[in-house]
Each structure stands twice: as C-alpha cells, then as structure tokens.
Design a protein around this nucleic acid. Structure first.
Length: 586
RNA sequence: GGCGCUGUAGCUCAGUUGGUUAGAGCGCCGCCCUGUCACGGCGGAGGUCGUGGGUUCGAGCCCCAUCAGCGUCGCCA
C-alpha cells in the first residue's frame, strides 16, 4: 500500500488504498463517528473512523500529538462536506487499520493554534513549537532560499569551500567566542566572526570563485534581528570589479526571489552613502515608500525663531519630513509625537499642520501660511498633511529625521511585509571617528580597498577617503556588506600604518595574511549576506526566532538545552582553567 | 551596562479608587452524540497572582529589590 504525505491526496486519488503517517492535529469525536486531522510537514488530511472497523475502539482514545500510522481507502467526501480551506479538503481517508506509533503527553501548549505562546515556553519546548505549520513553513522557505543560492552559484562555477570553526581571534571588531586549547595551556581558539581572511586566502590560493553557507559567531548583545550565531552567504571572486560583484549578488537575489517566492524583482536602485544619509537619514534606507527628507534651513535664513536661528548660525541644518494626513492629529497627538522624536534623539520637533482651514504650528508665531508654503513644496506635501521639522548639527539632524520618517511610515501603513524593496548603498567613507576615543577607525574592516584615485588621501586627508565598499539593503534592514579588497601588500601596510598599528601588532594579528599577500595575490572582492535576515523578511516575520530552528534568548541562552552550563572539574582541569590535580597536591 | 513593556489556571488573557469565595475562552478529565472540520451538549477538576521584602485593618492591584522573556540605546571593525 502506497504511503502518501498528509498534504498529498486529491480527488484523483478517490478509491485508492493509502497509508498516512503523522500527528493528531485535532480530533472531532461524534460518538458514532470520529474525525482526526492528521498532520505532517506537508499538510493535513482528515481521516475518518467508523464503528464497522476494529480500529474504532482504539481511535476513541486518541489525543493531540499522538503519532499514528493509518491504512485505508481514499474517498471523496460526501457532497457539501468538502473543506475548501484544506488542500486535501475534497477527500478523506476511511481508516481500516490504525497503528499507534507513540503516545504524547498533553502538550504544555496547543500545537494546533495560530497564536504564539510566550517566547520562553516556545523555546523550552522548541520541538513542539517547530511542529506548528507556521514554523514548518518558515524553515522550509529558509531551506529553499539556501538551496537556490547554492544552485545559483554552482551554475556560475563558484565552488563551496568550508573554512574552519576553530581559528585565530582578532582583538578588533566584535567580541570573540573563545575555545580553550587543551594541548597548549593558556591559549585559545576563536570561533569565526566571519570567514573574511580565509576566503581572501582562498582567492590567493587560486580558487577564483568561492562561496560558502557560513556559520558565524559574535559575542555581542542580541536584538530581534541579531543572534550570536548566524548564517551568511559568503562570496568572494578574483579579477573582478565592484560592478561585477554587485551584478552577481543582485542576480542571486533575483534568482532566489523568483524561485522561492515567484516574484520578479526590479533592478535595485543605488545611492551613495552621502545621498542615503541626506535623503533617508540612514545608511540602510527603507525604500518601500517615499517621504524623503529635505533640507529647509535656507528657507529660515532670516527667521527670528531662536531655536532654528541659533542652530543655523552654528553651522547646523533644519530638515523636514512629510507626514501624510498628519494635519488631522490633535495637539495631544502631536505632543506625543514630539516625545517620540526626543526618544529618538531629537532636541525638539516643530510640527506644521496643513489643515483645510489654515496652517497650525507648534511655532505659530514664526511659521504661518507664507512660511509653510515653500517648505510644503519642497517636501511635496499637500493640504491635510503635516510637516515635521528638526534642527540640529548636520550629522545628527538627518539621523533623527530619518527615524521619524520610519515611524510615520509605520503609522501610515506604508511598511507592508509583502513588499520587497532592495537597494544598494555605495561609496562609504573609509574611516569614521570612534565616539569613545575620538580617533579614526575603519568604518568596516581594514582589508577594504580605498576608492581608486583616492589613495593619496591616506597621508593627506584620510577622513575624506572613501572605500570600495557596498551594502545591500532590504526594507530598511542591512542584509550585508562587501568590498573590493586590498591585494597589494604595500597598500595594506600603508593602511595599517594609517590606523596606527605598529609593525609588531600587524605581524602578531595578521602576519599570516600579510605574508600571503606577498605571494601573488590576485585582485579580488566579494560580499556576505545575512541569510537569517533574508529568510525573516521573505517569510514576513519580524524576529529571527521565527526562521531559526533553535535560537537563543536575548540573554544568549538556549532554554531547551539549558546552555550555557557549567563544565565538570575534570574538563576544566584538562583545559587548564583550574589547577591540575598534580600541581594542587604539589 | 542604561531605559521601557510583560509576568494571574496547562495555554491565551480579563481583573474597576486597595475590600466578601480571583474570572473567561481554549486545553484537560467524565458522560452523551454518525458528517464534523475552532464539531456540538451536559458535568467536573485545576490558582503559593514570577520570587523576596515592605506599606496597610486589608495587596493580584501601591512601594522597593530580584529573576525571566521581549523591545530599545550602548555594543555589533
């Protein structure tokens, strides 16, 4: 007798014998007739027990999450009792043979409900949580995404190379997860934050086109879009231009979206970092909607409004953003919006409501009909909209306005999760000023090549230098970064020098890599994309937990396994983290 | 490390200005039911109100501390 999955049977199977295996999703016991919805990864099929068959008496004792094997005959449901909400809803299996493969305890939460139980409960009983159709669907989509990526790169003659998990740590960047060495007391491996240097060495080794579905670890605090271990699509190519990398990565995403979601993606818009900051106030702009920021400081050149005046005189800027339909807000609602803005780092916020009956503003004395008009024009605002204005130093003001732009979009329902707006951000500055030390540090990593023709800035004016670095952004999430790398050893040394690293420091941390550059490193570049985030957005989810089988809590714990956990004394001694027995006695 | 939200039955939640015996839906248990699909009907069990302290004649509710989950800032070259 043929075994079918629980999502497979159709009217065409009417009359055939079939075997199904799965879990009891739901039971409907009518006394003289018992319906069970049997569930597996593929779907749900209704199976029916009637009293003529011996199985009926056992079926009376079936409960949620029991595991069954049933054999019987597929039959069309009686006219009028089809279930259009099930793919298998035209048929049912009339059970003749029931085998109870395993019983289940009453589960701590109902697997057959859509609503999420509390997060910690889901994580503790992850095997039950993962049985829910939503999670089965999400992890299946994730699998298809990864499969599509591998197929895409395989067709283009990239090869997947596995890089080690036990590597050398770097003091720069994120905190490393360390693994103590047993054979070398007092020394540690680090788990990779990314295979960056190893994939570059694969280029030096002549592999030309590399990819890897790479696991990465960073011991930093978590967020809804950040886990301590994550998976990235890691790509590196030799003899390529930035243009070729952008093209292959964009093509890959187009291929994935087409294959997995059956959607055609338009060409990704591109913008320079500086433009992204001006237009959107962030280097990861959400371009699902417009509402672009605009400078309006020049319109207040002769204002008497003290707040704007003083900011403008000290070299700051006034930036506006449009709030569609915002004129309908009450004074109280505007006040709350001002609080939101302050929460986002604003010094304050001026609102201008373009009401049908005239202009109202929180700076009424200074912004009337005449002043509001040109601002509205620049922000492409109409009657019924509101304008939000922010004044601050040049860097800060765009960031704040950008956060409020995003908040406005949320309120106006412009952030649809079935809308996928990719874009590229390019031409990043090479350096940024470290907030703590005030010293210049690489905005990304020190193996990034400076923009062609700007190398002389290394000595002359390093802060103005730009990097051959690019980010792919989707719906306001940074999916990942890439760059053209430095392949000339002398340029790499000049960069380390600019960063204030001594010859000894370079040798100790990156000696193996700098040496490799000396033996004929080809020009190369690449990119890494966060697969967890891609899967999250593709699934319409807002938390990585929904697309990772066994995620960690915000405090980096695994509630199912209860990790991390203490190690035994013997383990600690072996790893030289406790004095050995012998030296204790001695 | 900072800030915020949440924590009440197995689950999801309600619980009034602090006042009698803390409720609902689902689940669970028992009985009934031959066309349901969130089946239906009748009955029942089930609670240290996260934990510890305090205020009060009296605390699920107010205060302090603490734990956990989530969100957010710092952090994530």
């Amino acid at each position: 007798m043929k075994r079918f999955s629980c999502g497979a049977l159709r009217a065409a199977n009417d009359g055939t014998g079939a075997e199904l295996c799965g879990w009891v999703h739901r039971r409907r016991d009518h006394g003289g007739l018992i319906f069970i919805d049997l569930r597996d990864r593929d779907g749900i099929t209704q199976i029916v027990f009637d009293p003529q068959h011996a199985a009926f008496s056992d079926a009376e004792h079936l409960r949620s999450e029991d595991v069954l094997r049933v054999r019987g005959r597929v039959r069309k449901r009686p006219a009028g009792t089809e279930n259009t909400r099930l793919a298998t809803g035209d048929v049912e299996l009339a059970v003749e043979e029931l085998e109870i493969l395993n019983r289940s305890q009453v589960p701590p939460f109902q697997v057959n409900l859509e609503e999420n139980p509390e997060e910690s409960l889901r994580l503790e009983y992850r095997y039950l949580d993962l049985r829910r159709p939503r999670m089965q669907r999400n992890l299946t989509i994730r699998h298809r995404i990864i499969k599509a990526m591998r197929d895409f790169f395989d067709e283009r003659e990239f090869i997947e190379i596995e890089t080690p998990m036990l590597i050398k740590g770097t003091p720069e960047g994120a905190r490393d997860y360390l693994v103590p060495s047993r054979l070398y007391p007092g020394t540690f491996y680090a788990l990779p934050q990314s295979p960056q240097l190893l994939k570059q060495i694969c280029m030096i080794a002549g592999f030309g086109r590399y990819m890897q579905i790479a696991r990465c670890m960073r011991d930093e605090d978590l967020r809804s879009d950040r886990q301590p271990e994550f998976t990235q699509l890691d790509v590196e190519m030799s003899f390529c231009s930035q243009e070729e990398v952008l093209d292959v990565m964009e093509s890959c995403m187009r291929f994935v979206w087409k294959r997995v979601l059956s959607l055609e993606l338009a060409p990704f818009p591109r913008m320079a970092f500086a433009d992204a900051m001006e237009r959107f106030g962030t280097d990861k702009p959400d371009v699902r909607f417009g509402l672009e920021l605009a400078r309006v400081g020049d319109l207040f050149a002769s204002t008497e409004f003290a707040v704007f005046k003083s900011v403008l005189e000290s070299g700051g800027e006034v930036v506006g953003v449009r709030y569609p339909g915002g004129a309908a807000l009450s004074r109280r609602e505007f006040d709350a919006l001002v609080d939101d803005a302050k929460q986002s780092g604003a010094k304050g916020m001026v609102w201008v409501a373009l009401g049908a009956d005239g202009v109202k503003s929180s700076a009424q004395r200074f912004i009337g009909e005449a002043q509001a008009d040109p601002i509205a024009q620049r922000l492409r605002a109409e009657r019924g909209d509101a304008l939000l204005l922010f004044a601050d130093e040049r860097d800060a003001v765009f960031t704040v306005a950008g956060k409020m732009r995003s908040e406005i979009a949320r309120r106006c329902g412009l952030r649809r999760d079935d809308d996928f707006a990719f874009c590229w951000v390019t031409d990043f500055p090479y350096l940024e000023i470290d907030a703590e030390t005030g010293k210049p540090v690489p905005a990304h990593h020190p193996f990034t090549a400076p923009m062609e023709g700007e190398w002389d800035l290394i000595e002359r004016d390093p802060l103005r230098m730009r990097a051959q670095h690019y980010d792919m952004v989707l719906n306001g999430y940074e999916l990942g970064s890439g760059s053209i790398r430095i392949h000339k050893p002398e340029l790499q040394r000049r960069i380390f020098e600019m960063l204030g690293m001594s010859r000894e420091q370079v040798e100790e941390q990156f000696g193996f890599f700098v040496r490799a550059l000396d033996y004929g490193a080809p020009p190369h570049g690449g990119m890494a994309l966060g697969i967890d985030r891609i899967a999250m957005i593709a699934c319409g989810e807002e938390n990585l937990h929904e697309v990772i089988a066994f995620p960690k809590t915000q405090t980096a714990r695994d509630l199912m396994m209860d990790a991390p956990a203490p190690a035994s004394e013997k383990q600690l001694r072996d790893l030289h983290l406790l004095p050995s027995q012998r030296s204790q006695r001695g």
